[in-house]
């Protein structure tokens, strides 16, 4: 090993011509390159924000391809874990929401696809607030023997009705008003309507987290609502089944997309997609055309829109 450390040019055991070649290589002239011009070009490249060469994009910042691969594996493994946490958080958020609904506090849904329809969302939020007030007045008018469960059902029904009225106003939705199941929108980041209400809700949520029962919602604590996760899971399974049926039985897929149960409202965009695709596969172009226009208005930022405009909507025209 010691002989390996000696440079080849000093290794007397090597042929002389090898040492001479190394010596000539070391004394080779500098490359014919204008280094001053190169430095100016380098500065100009930096100033212009020139993109990295393709081969370097995986190694900038000390990140090598192997570490990127490990990160990808960890990321893939983290997806189901995070998904489970989101679902779990969403469901516990729904429990909190049902509690808060009885206290008269309004939670804003944080579902991404509802954020896409921001204008509709604002309108719905406004009407929902009104519906809460209306429900409160209904509550005062109603007899005192109405249970908290009944009040909760009324609140959610009125919210859904107003939601559909606003949708019908914009889209002339042909379907009848659907009596939705109890609200299941995940509200893992609930936005409370005002700070005073937030102060009221926060202790309740803390007590709930400890397993205690807030005094305000004693009725719901005694009669906990049915866990909404079943509804969502059943709807997700049904949506998957409807998508699978699109090719071989679009009529059945259409029926499923229009079925009233189970529907939580969370997957309404996905159901509308299935509905449109089923209509097109069945050759009901006129119905599909109206549906496409309505979909584009309802979900202007949907990833499905590009496909609609390029592939499906021209057919509808």
């Amino acid at each position: 090993m010691t002989s390996e450390l000696r440079p080849l040019i000093q290794d007397a055991s090597r042929p002389a011509y090898v040492r001479e070649l190394i010596r000539q290589a070391r004394s080779a002239k500098e490359p014919r390159y204008d280094f001053n011009a190169g430095l100016l070009k380098h500065k100009a490249l930096i100033a212009s924000g020139a993109p990295l060469p393709a081969w370097a994009k995986d190694s900038v910042g000390g990140i090598t391809k192997s570490s990127m691969l490990i990160a990808r594996i960890v990321g893939v493994a983290a997806v189901p874990i995070v998904g489970a946490m989101v679902v779990w958080g969403g469901l516990s958020g729904m429990d909190r929401k049902s509690e808060a609904t009885q206290t008269g506090t309004v939670f804003s849904p944080s579902v991404q696809k509802l954020e896409n329809a921001a204008s509709d969302q604002n309108e719905i939020a406004t009407t929902v607030t009104g519906s809460e007030n209306a429900t409160a007045s209904l509550d005062t008018e109603s007899s005192s023997n109405a249970t908290a469960q009944a009040r909760e059902t009324k609140v959610h029904q009125s919210r859904r009705v107003l939601h559909h009225r606003s949708a019908e106003k914009n889209t002339e939705r042909p379907q009848a008003v659907v009596p939705y199941a109890p609200a299941t929108e995940p509200s893992d980041s609930p936005i409370v309507s005002n700070s005073s209400q937030a102060e009221e809700i926060a202790p309740n949520m803390q007590m709930e987290a400890r397993g205690d029962t807030p005094g305000i919602s004693k009725a719901s604590a005694e009669e906990p609502a049915a866990p909404p996760d079943d509804t969502l899971l059943r709807e997700m399974a049904l949506l998957g089944e409807a998508r699978r049926l699109l090719d071989r039985d679009p009529a059945r897929a259409l029926t499923l997309s229009r079925a009233r149960e189970p529907k939580t409202g969370i997957l309404s965009e996905e159901w509308d997609q299935v509905n449109l695709l089923a209509l097109i596969k069945l050759g009901r172009i006129e119905d599909a055309r109206e549906g496409v226009k309505r979909f584009l208005r309802l979900y202007p930022n949907s990833a499905f829109n590009e496909r609609l405009r390029k592939e499906i909507f021209p057919l509808a025209d």
């Binding site: 490249l45 990295l52 060469p53 370097a56 910042g61």
Partner: peptide, 8 residues
């Protein structure tokens, strides 16, 4: 040298 720059 561009990569060296981006690497800090």
């Amino acid at each position: 040298f561009l990569v060296a720059h981006r690497n800090g």
